[in-house]
Amino acid sequence: MSLFVDILSWACILGGGFFTIIGAVGTLRFPDFWSRLHAVSVSDSAGMLLFILGMCLQAGLTLVTLKLVLIGIFLFITGPTATHAVANAALVTGLRPPIANDIEPEVEGGA
């Protein structure tokens, strides 16, 4: 049983590391700011959740798990809020999102 939990938590941490790196690679490879937002949200959601889950499984039912769950919930709420705030500030200050050529834009001057 303990071995099973260990393997599960290892898988979680490996997956978390994988998604974190993927997100960082995405921030490097994507061509413009608006697509980079999406890459960051990969490492912020999947990477963070898997890491926290893996550590929770390692800690068992202790005070540590409670702290981890609190951190997880907090990041789960603030992560998208911060991303939204960045996107909103960029839009308000006039950084227009690019739109693919084959799509009819809904907004003026969006291209």
Partner: peptide, 17 residues
């Protein structure tokens, strides 16, 4: 600038982890 803010924010999450 927003790329930088984004990277800083993401870096913060990484720090917590």
């Amino acid at each position: 600038l927003y790329d930088r803010v984004l990277a800083t924010n993401s870096f913060g999450t990484t720090t917590v982890l």
